[in-house]
Structure formats: C-alpha cells, structure tokens
C-alpha cells in the first residue's frame, strides 16, 4: 500500500471516529508541518501554535477531503492559509527581531542539551542548530509572501503553477518573488559569513 493509500485509509477511519487513526495521520505529517511552521515563524512556540491551528483546520475539514490531490498537498494548502492568517493576526511573531531573539535562545538551549547528552558529537549538534537558526533568521528577514514562496518551492517542491494558485497570483509573479527572495537571502548569507 502506497503512502497516499495509507493516508486515505487513515482518513476514512478517522472520519468514522477512530481516534487512533487520527493520531497516526497526524504523526505521519507533523514533522513536516512543524518544520514548515518553524521556518516561517522563526521560533518553536509560534511554530507549535501554527501547527496546532493547521491540524485543527485539517480536522474540521477532513470530511471535505475528496482525494482528488494527495493529502499532503491538501494539508499544505491549509498550512499556507493558516500561516497567512497568523501573519495578519500576529505580525510580531513573524518579524526578524523575533526570529533573531529566538535563534539566540535556541543556541543557549542547545548548549544545555549537549551537557545533558555528552555521548553525541557536541560540535556537530551545535553546528546543526546554528545553521538552522541562521536559516530561520535569514528567512525571517523576508516579507511573508516571499518567505512563503521560498518555503513552498525549496522545501515543499511545489511547481510555480501550484504556488501561483495557492497565493492567487500569476506564475510569473511567483517566479519574480522567488528570484527576489533568493537575492535577498544571498545578501544576508554573505553578511553572516558563515554560509
């Protein structure tokens, strides 16, 4: 059974009231949604809030899923809309300052985790965390619409046609936003000298 078929089976069971099926369905996709949220919001607290809103939206609309597209595509359509809603409601949680502050806190937290787990390679774990924090910070410097295009193109591998449909813009506008965002990210990376 393919992943899409497994998703469909879990959806059917969840619609019939199976809490276990719903739990499995969430577990299959929560890492992808959480990292999506983390890159967009820049901090774990807001990422968790966004993820909860996404799955709540999925739960409320699960009976409307017809299986015309893959569940993951439908899921990220909801995630995209929820991210825009959150950006409008709480613009401060997606600002660059918020991202930078949170990135610094995460590095401190990671040092504490390294002390608690000495068997792991401390340098590798620190590099990983710092790299993520920098990417979060650089993404956070972009306007939300550019951040979303980068997220959907680079991390979710959507086509520009799909991105254009999601954002209700033309494909050329989506391409321009993507190129503009990459140029801005390149400039930020050169400033950081670390990447």
């Amino acid at each position: 059974m393919s992943l899409a078929e497994q998703d469909d089976a879990l959806i059917r069971a969840a619609l019939e009231g199976s809490a276990r099926a719903w739990d499995q369905l969430v577990r299959r996709h929560e890492t992808q949604v959480y990292n999506f949220s983390l890159r967009l919001t820049g901090n774990p607290t807001d990422a968790l809030d966004l993820m909860q809103e996404v799955f709540l939206g999925v739960y409320r609309n699960l009976h409307r899923f017809r299986g015309d597209a893959q569940f993951s595509t439908w899921l990220f359509r909801i995630a995209h809309n929820k991210a825009i809603d959150m950006g409008r409601r709480r613009p401060q949680c997606m600002s660059l300052d918020s991202v930078l502050d949170e990135a610094g806190d995460q590095v401190e937290t990671r040092w504490q985790q390294l002390d608690d787990a000495p068997e792991q390679d401390p340098q590798a774990m620190l590099d990983e965390r710092q790299r993520n924090a920098l990417i979060q910070a650089q993404m956070g410097a972009l306007p939300l619409e550019q951040r979303l295009v980068v997220e959907l193109k680079v991390f979710q591998s959507l086509t520009f046609e799909e991105i254009a449909e999601l954002q209700d813009i033309s494909a050329n506008t989506a391409k321009t936003r993507f190129y503009t965002a990459l140029r801005r990210l390149k400039a930020l990376m050169e400033q950081d000298h670390g990447m």
């Binding site: 890492t31 990292n35 990210l185």
Partner: peptide, 9 residues
Amino acid sequence: QLLRWQPQS
C-alpha cells in the same frame, strides 16, 4: 544553503 536545514523533532 537553504537545503542544509536539519529537520527538527
């Protein structure tokens, strides 16, 4: 560089 992102648990 962006793809060097390490998925977080």
